[in-house]
Design a protein around this nucleic acid. Structure first.
Length: 573
DNA sequence: GGCACCGCTGCCGTTTTTTCAGGAAAAAA
């Protein structure tokens, strides 16, 4: 039995335990063990033979026993016993967001339906509303949930942070290949698209076969899907695919540009080449005389088209080709421009570290300041601070500031914007804070005009500094609220408020398109991590790249200002 | 069920509000 088969069994056990309402920690233990086996380097059978199963993290006596049984007999008594109790297909139903375990079981027992398709049919034929404890609204909710889920199933993209981690692991192995001259990541990951499908890699070598073999034999490689003289495609042990394309050193720049895309950007470049009498295609670049031209570097390729170099973040056909022709590309914000983080959490609410830890980590990053913005009282799940605790925190921050040189901790709050648009803290508290970051965390399904009015109310509050994650989207998991972003940007401009570009990799909110709108409208943004621990301060690069995709420049990003200039700005508006 | 750290145990995410239905599930960071 192979690693992924063992992992699959452990996962199935965890699903069945969950369906049966088993203790959460036992479910989690099987799930964790499954992931551990799945991402294991080396063969699980070897571990077994060497008696080292328990060396694998998350595997102890009990799960070790299940694995041993699997490897010896190819089956698991536990799994089979569980399957007798509950059909495994039912788990697919509770994986649909919006349908829980008890509802699924209730419907299953009342109607004998098991699969998602059967649940949908039962809802459509109005059989669910007749079950005691459910009604027409519950029935509609189930139907809507299934239809939303169906759409999301085709979605195989993952958040950029995962793709980045897999890519860097690949490059970690791959860069040491013999004969490798150059290598770079291309594709949507290089453009910093928030959700990434697969990883494209371009390499230059004089010995393609050697490098292709090396790629296919990386420890991270699980399946070789395709292998040719100058290309290969693999599935990694993290289930993400990676594609390699090999060229000569002289062709590296052009290939990198062609494989970076986007399609729409390349199509603009092709038009431009044609207009100049050249020809650009997926195969290469041919000048007016029909000769193939080589470009070892990308910038030479752009120059040949009469263009300024276009940073990968901008290659989405949003006007960048015209701007590059006119020499009016924006001077994009960089990570090095950032002087502080204006939205971080500490252990006072739901963060992992102390105020001092966060401040020290921020200073170590070269920042001048940080704003502690723990949650406000209404957000119970995040251990929001009561007014009294917030007052205590302010005292603590004053005390810490007295000990710090060349670094400032700002007193802040991530204050909830209540469903009616009021803020979760009274004016006399708000006015004692340096930074007030307002967020919508609850009632995310309000109607467009209601939620828009709610956010506009907050923007009209004189104490609010920054509107955090303005649409509250979670990539791949939660749709944005119905807020009218154009009116939000308009109101931010009128009231001199700052809009956040939340750098949390599954938020990235404002989105790149919204950043562009904010830039066009002349609104300031603040790129903040929303870090809940010191490691997450590094999320800043995701935020900066997202802002770059929206054409953000340094002068329009609040937290590129020095401490003095920032205070002056806040004071003035 | 795993694990860390001692003594056979306790910790591992938690708490309140909303929603649909009349108690219970889901959602929020």
């Amino acid at each position: 039995m192979k690693n992924d088969e063992v992992a699959a069994v452990l996962y199935d056990i965890s699903r069945l335990l969950e369906l049966e309402g088993e203790e959460a920690y036992r479910i989690r233990a099987y799930r964790k063990a499954s992931q551990s086996v799945e991402s294991l380097e080396g063969d699980i059978d070897e571990y077994y033979k060497e008696g080292r199963l328990r060396d694998i993290p998350g595997i102890g006596t009990s799960i070790g026993g299940v694995i041993e049984e699997l490897l010896r007999t190819g089956r698991s008594n536990l799994l089979e016993a569980l399957k007798k109790e509950t059909p495994l297909e039912l788990y697919e139903v509770i994986e649909v967001p919006g349908i829980g375990r008890k509802t699924a079981l209730k419907v299953h027992r009342a109607l004998g339906v098991t699969t998602i398709g059967e649940f949908r049919d039962a809802a459509r034929s109005h059989r669910i509303r007749r079950i005691k404890g459910l009604g027409d609204k519950a029935e509609k909710k189930i139907l809507d949930a299934i239809e939303r889920h169906r759409k999301s199933l085709g979605e195989t993209r993952v958040p950029i942070i995962r793709a980045t981690a897999v890519a860097s692991e690949i490059l970690g192995y791959f860069k040491d290949c013999e004969g490798l001259l150059r290598v770079d990541v291309a594709g949507s990951l290089r453009r910093h698209v928030p959700m990434v499908g697969d990883i494209d890699i371009v390499a230059a070598t004089d010995d393609p076969q050697e490098v292709v073999d090396c790629f296919c034999n990386m420890p991270i490689t699980r399946i070789v899907k395709d292998k040719g003289e100058h290309h290969a495609e693999i599935t990694t042990r993290y289930r993400m695919d990676a594609k390699l394309r090999i060229v000569s050193r002289e062709d590296f720049g052009l290939r990198l540009a062609l494989d970076t895309g986007s399609k729409a950007h390349l199509s603009e470049l092709e038009k431009r080449a044609a207009a100049r009498g050249d020809r650009l295609s997926r195969e290469g670049f041919y000048n007016a005389g029909g000769e193939k031209v080589k470009f070892p570097e990308e910038d030479g390729f752009y120059r040949a088209l009469g263009l300024e170099y276009v940073p990968p973040d901008l290659r989405e056909n949003r006007g960048e080709v015209d701007a590059a022709a006119k020499g009016t590309l924006p001077d994009l914000i960089t990570v090095e421009d950032m002087r502080g983080d204006l939205h971080v959490h500490t252990e006072w609410s739901d963060g992992a570290n102390s105020i001092q830890d966060m401040a020290m980590a921020a200073r170590a990053k070269g920042y001048e300041y940080i704003a502690i913005c723990d949650h406000s009282k209404s957000l119970h799940v995040a251990n929001g601070l009561s007014i009294e605790r917030l007052r205590d925190q302010m005292v603590e921050i004053d005390r810490l500031n007295d000990t710090l040189e060349n670094f400032t901790i700002f007193k802040g709050s991530e204050v909830d914007i209540m469903p009616d648009g009021s803020l979760d803290l009274p004016d006399d508290v708000l006015e004692d804070l340096d930074i007030v970051v307002g967020s919508v965390h609850t009632q995310l399904r309000q109607d467009p005009d209601v939620v828009t009015r709610r956010v506009l109310n907050a923007l009209e509050n004189e104490h609010l500094t920054i509107l955090a994650h303005p649409t509250s989207r979670i990539l791949g998991r939660r749709e944005p609220t119905a807020v009218d972003i154009d009116r939000v940007i308009e109101a931010a401009k009128e009231n001199r408020k700052v809009l956040e570009v939340n750098a949390y990799p599954d938020r990235l909110d404002l989105s790149d398109e919204h950043v562009k709108k904010a830039m066009d409208a002349g609104v300031m943004v603040s790129i903040d991590t929303d870090a809940h621990g010191i490691a997450e301060l590094d999320y800043i690069s995701f935020g900066v790249h997202n802002a770059r995709r929206g054409w953000a420049t340094k002068s329009r990003v609040l937290n590129t200002l020095s401490t003095g200039a920032l205070l002056e700005y806040i004071d003035r508006y």
